[in-house]
């Protein structure tokens, strides 16, 4: 007689916890693992393929920036890949709408509502240099702090690449 009601209350509790978690992670902040070496040395400074997920960095992603989509140069953002909506990328904003960004071959003007993102490790990063400017609507949040591993806990600073961007 007691078992169904216990099960029911557990189900109810986990449902509530799920609702609250989803809301908080959508509206306020969430924790995201960073895979790969594209943002080295900011994240995953030494990637060891055999250690894999143990050595991954976990970052805190805040969602308040999605209220008015105000970003500045050097912010680290999480966004959906323009080529595959199931993939998420973590990259740094190099250029904002109206800026001119120099690529290897020419200079590109960033259209309205887009941004230019690049990884910190330019050699092993798939970013705007391969898929062009990214619509700001694909942005999922801004990475502000490293939470894991313990010896690297701290806030992520804003780095602006010099001589890459000229605003018009």
């Amino acid at each position: 007689m007691g078992t169904p009601s216990v099960l029911w209350s557990i189900a109810k509790k986990s449902f509530t916890v799920g609702l609250v978690t989803v809301t908080v992670s959508d509206r306020f902040a969430s924790i995201v693992p960073v895979r790969g070496a594209s943002m080295s040395p900011t994240f995953n400074p030494k990637t060891n393929t055999s250690l894999g997920s143990l050595s991954d960095d976990y970052v805190l992603v805040e969602k308040f920036c999605l209220r008015n989509y105000k970003f500045s140069h050097g912010d680290v953002i999480v966004f959906c890949s323009p080529n595959d909506h199931k993939e998420k990328h973590v990259k740094r904003i190099v250029g904002l709408p109206g800026d001119w960004v120099g690529t290897r071959y020419d200079v590109v003007k960033i259209p309205e509502g887009h941004c230019w993102v690049e990884g910190d490790s330019s050699s092993s990063s798939k970013d705007s240099r391969s898929f062009g400017p990214v619509p700001l609507g694909l942005v999922n949040g801004r990475a502000t702090h490293i939470l894991w591993p313990p010896h690297r806990v701290g806030s992520i600073d804003r780095k602006v690449a010099q001589n890459r961007v000229s605003s018009s």
Binding site: E112, G113, L136
Partner: peptide, 8 residues
């Protein structure tokens, strides 16, 4: 669709 020209 979220507008590509203005994300708001």
């Amino acid at each position: 669709v979220r507008s590509p020209l203005d994300p708001k």
